[in-house]
Amino acid sequence: MELKAEQVLKVGEYEFPLDRLYYRGRNAHIWVKREGEAVLLGIDAFLAESAGYLNYISVTAEELTRGEAFANIESAKFVSKLYSPVSGRVVEVNSEVMENPRLVNQSPYEAWIVKVKPRSEAELGHEELLGESEAIAAWIEEEIARLEEE
């Protein structure tokens, strides 16, 4: 584990900017970043790498419920789901990413997928949203160990 000057946590080959939170519920690997009263949701580097190149993304919900799917993604003919870390309402979908889903693989922390207005501030305070580098590192190390066992 290594914490760099620009506050990016590096665990194995994966980077995790510490200016946002990471949702480990349902092993979702979704990041959450504040933007005014809303939050941006995107895919972390671990999921972007393990899923492979994304061919398609579709957002399937306007009203999000924490722990429920809000989008489908397809890579290598495998359709997977993205689970929302917060309950709230989608206020914007990133059309650039919908047009070119591979942006997510190229720059997972720039290529946000949806902008969401959380139902309340408490949505950003639950225990499955990780912000501390130690907690993120411990989770990702578990995930890497699983990959290595494969």
């Binding site: 092993n27 290598a76 990959l147």
Partner: peptide, 17 residues
């Protein structure tokens, strides 16, 4: 099951297995 021990995380490994 997605979290079962016998289920690979990586898509490529999932197919191969």
């Amino acid at each position: 099951h997605r979290s079962a021990e016998h289920t690979p995380v990586k898509t490529d490994t999932f197919y191969r297995k």
